[in-house]
Write a protein that binds this DNA or RNA. Structure first.
Lengths: 230, 230
DNA sequence: AATCGTTGTTGACAAATGTCATTTATCTTT
DNA sequence: AAAGATAAATGACATTTGTCAACAACGATT
């Protein structure tokens, strides 16, 4: 199970994440006092859809997936890496998590008290605006995902997922896919078998090479084209 | 084209919409000074995806649809009626609209200056919290729509759309469908023909009756069941 | 009433996609 | 190294869904 540790300070995250840059030293200190660090092994659940959300979560090491648990299947909304924080929309509505989060790699995360956070949102308009801006960016990303998942065929959706993984998540090419094929399928809204098949087709067409979990995108333009034409 | 009018006052909306209840009289007055009313005929576009968004919009009469323009198809996010306001996530990010809005019935709307609005969000923490709360509620609704559109089959999706229309939009049963079949399809992420076919099946199975654009849901439980089982 | 354009409806068909069963690879544990 | 568990890959098939073409209904205009 998860182990408690208490190593870093909020000032560390302040150096890395733009959200906390809007906080003053005393405000950071307040936040620091109302947080604790937890470590998770790969596969462990960080929080579960439907449960109360007294804390929000800030990934300091490793990687997490956030996903909606639907009807038997999961829909992965995104992969979160250091130093990004995960706040569900529930914190201002019903204090429930509206999606689950679990570690896809061994990870550590800060759990920050939501009430402290909301208090700072009230007191510091710059912080509030930055929070709203983040929230808005997330919504815009969701819209794109909405279009991808509802209007594109499988090839376009896998292309979108590969671009996302290479450029937003692992930020390199070639990259090692640390998520499973099932996760790739859950990210693209299709069955695991279909995801595997399309990956194979892309390989046969010379768009990418793959050896085990290492994927090298050879023809980024082609991938973009497939993404845009559905 | 749209005609300008200047009839009501923000205080009117204050009586109807919970968002503005958090504003003081002087604040409402400020908002009132930075708004104007516009009327739209059915079918007219209120704002267009990709264009700048110097104003947000508050529907005071009629009904609007908000929709993402995707690859040839539209995805309807929701139907907006008085007194609800439409703010895109772009106002805090890139000052662009990330979806389009158009009148599905003859409508009037207030266009409120975004800068004034953001100023009030900074100054009035209660108002800011209420804004965030609304935004969050919208995100939660989007999650449900996400699951509906990506994990349910057509019958489940039409069931969801019918429940939404009957209970959230028209708020009565029977109700007159003022949107087209194409709109119903865009709301459910499928082709117009498929939407029509499923409506017919529901009719044959006695779940509803329909005469022209009037729909009467006879078996709400069955509809719920179809929604839940996909 | 006749015409035209739009929207709604239907049927036949093709394409996309999921499901199931089976095999292969990979990794861990013994 | 052997065994077992898990993940990945493949093939056959059924189902879901979209597309296309034709037609009917409706409203607006002449």
């Amino acid at each position: 199970m998860a182990r408690f540790t208490q190593t870093s300070n909020c000032v560390d995250c302040n150096c890395k994440s733009s959200v906390f840059k809007k906080l003053s030293i005393p405000e950071l200190e307040l936040m620091n006092q109302n947080r604790f660090e937890v470590s998770f092994k790969a596969g462990e659940i960080m929080f579960k859809q439907g449960t109360p959300s007294p804390h929000f979560l800030c990934i300091t090491r490793g990687m997490a997936k956030i996903y909606i648990e639907g009807l038997g299947k999961n829909l992965i909304l995104g992969l979160i890496k250091p130093v990004e924080y995960i706040f569900g929309p529930g914190i201002y509505v019903d204090n429930r998590h509206h999606y689950s989060a679990s570690a896809v790699e061994d990870s550590t995360a800060c759990m920050v008290d939501v009430e402290t956070y909301k208090q700072l949102v009230r007191k510091n308009p710059d912080f509030a605006e930055e929070f709203i801006r983040r929230f808005s960016q997330q919504a815009i990303i969701n819209f794109d995902q909405f279009i991808s998942l509802t209007q594109k065929q499988m090839h376009g959706r896998i292309a979108d997922a590969l671009i996302y993984l290479s450029e937003k998540v692992y930020c390199c090419n070639p990259f090692e896919l640390t998520i499973s094929r099932q996760d790739l399928a859950d990210l693209s809204g299709m069955s695991k078998e279909s995801a595997i098949r399309i990956l194979k087709e892309f390989k046969e067409e010379g768009i990418l090479t793959s050896e085990g979990n290492f994927i090298h995108v050879l023809n980024r333009g082609q991938l973009q084209h497939i993404s845009e034409t559905g």
